[in-house]
Amino acid sequence: MYSLAVQNLNVWYGGQQALKNITVDFPERRISAIIGPSGCGKSTLLKSLNRLLELNESVRVEGRVLLDGEDIYAPGVDVVEVRSRIGLLAQKPFPLPMSIFDNVAYGLRLQGRNKREIAEIVEAQLQAVGLWDEVKDRLKAPATGLSGGQQQRLCLARTLAVRPEILLCDESTASLDPISARGIEELLAALRTHYTVIMVTHDIEQARRLADFVIFMWLGELIEQAPAGDFFDAPAAELTQAYLARRIG
């Protein structure tokens, strides 16, 4: 179920090519980590997976992204449906300018769920990300008053509340303090068996801790993709070896 595959994907920003002929198959119900130095196209690849890339008007996309075998870039595809099936946890936590409760409830209201259902899911979701005890007495308070780590957990709860099939994480711990980052990492690890998680990270150690499958990118090209064990123990490509040894990057 819910598999995601990229075939011959090319992306240009204006005249500049950002992704060059990427083909990759993301294993389902596993954590895939996309690693590589800044500007190598990791975030571009991630954002092409839920078509958020096209908010930027100068972007041109060629190739296919298959969600359960269907190309999400095909004409006639409902982009709203695609995005509600593929959730995104952004790099910086961005709580919507509304209450803690409404942040999680927003997506549920769009789905037309009734009040009781929404209240249940919000509580369950906040429990799941370990935020419930911290916020249960101030659900009506603005979400912007939470700390960075709490905000990111809230964003995760918000994203998961709409029950996506796939979760994209764009360096989601990069802007957090080490303890909060650890918290998010543990949550992602716990999601492993339920979701297909695709995360971008520039932290090799994080990829080593979390990933089941690793994709290494360099200047818009996919250099190597392999199960985490093989990738870290016996990288095939010379560039990968150099990157893991921190000789480049």
Binding site: V80, L88, Y106
Partner: peptide, 25 residues
């Protein structure tokens, strides 16, 4: 912030729902 647009769209909001939320909130 553009990130508000992205967050709402990523939650599966339509363009109109996104716009409405941005105006209201």
């Amino acid at each position: 912030p553009q990130q508000m647009r992205e967050s709402l769209l990523a939650l599966g909001a339509t363009r109109w729902e996104t716009t409405k939320c941005i105006v209201r909130h």
